[in-house]
């Protein structure tokens, strides 16, 4: 078995997912994790796919040329190996919002990177003309005090003139 990470992006229209996955199914591939989103009118897909041993990169790329042409998609494929991630990270969510200006994502992500805090999900929207809103899921290493991360982020949000909240999303077991 091979594992591929496939991305595809193009102008949205009905039928992209059906047309694209039809080709993967015909190759005998199985879809594992997928994320697909529509931003304005651009539809983007990330698919982690398990392919049979005899379906390598060349066969996969050749087969995907047809739906790429039909739907005018930019497609990339990359073979990857599943490696275990870090253990014990604590999940937090960060909301950042305020008047739009260049550099908000960069300042927040730079600060997180400097503290070795990993971003696991990020969504942002520019709405109503100039309100910028960004929500991030982050993983704080167990050795790092959440208060320290919160204080650092608050200092940055003051510099940027935006609002920021940092809160735990650790789930209780039920």
């Amino acid at each position: 078995m091979h594992e591929f990470a496939i991305t595809a992006i193009g102008q949205d229209r009905p039928g992209i997912v059906a047309g694209f996955t039809e080709v993967l199914l015909a190759l005998g591939c199985n879809l594992a994790d997928c994320s697909m989103s529509l931003l304005r009118n651009e539809f983007a897909m990330i698919l982690l796919v398990e392919s049979p041993q005899e379906v390598g990169a060349d066969r996969l790329n050749t087969a995907l040329e047809e739906p790429a042409r039909r739907f005018d998609l930019v497609v990339t494929t990359r073979e990857f190996e599943d490696v275990p991630g870090p253990e014990g990270d604590v999940p937090f969510v960060v909301s950042v919002y305020g008047k739009d200006r260049p550099g908000i994502v960069h300042a927040v992500s730079r600060a997180l990177a400097d503290m070795d805090v990993n971003i696991t999900d990020l969504r942002s929207h520019l709405v109503g003309g100039d309100l910028y809103a960004m929500i991030l899921d982050v993983a704080v290493p167990p050795a790092l005090a959440p208060e320290e991360v919160a204080a650092r982020l608050q200092a940055i949000s003051r510099d940027l003139g935006v609002s920021l909240t940092f809160r735990s999303t650790e789930a209780a077991e039920l």
Binding site: T169, E170, A171, A172, E173, L174
Partner: peptide, 12 residues
């Protein structure tokens, strides 16, 4: 609120 479930251990 975020919930985890012992019967669905791989998600919250």
């Amino acid at each position: 609120g975020r919930e985890g479930c012992l019967s669905l251990p791989s998600i919250t």
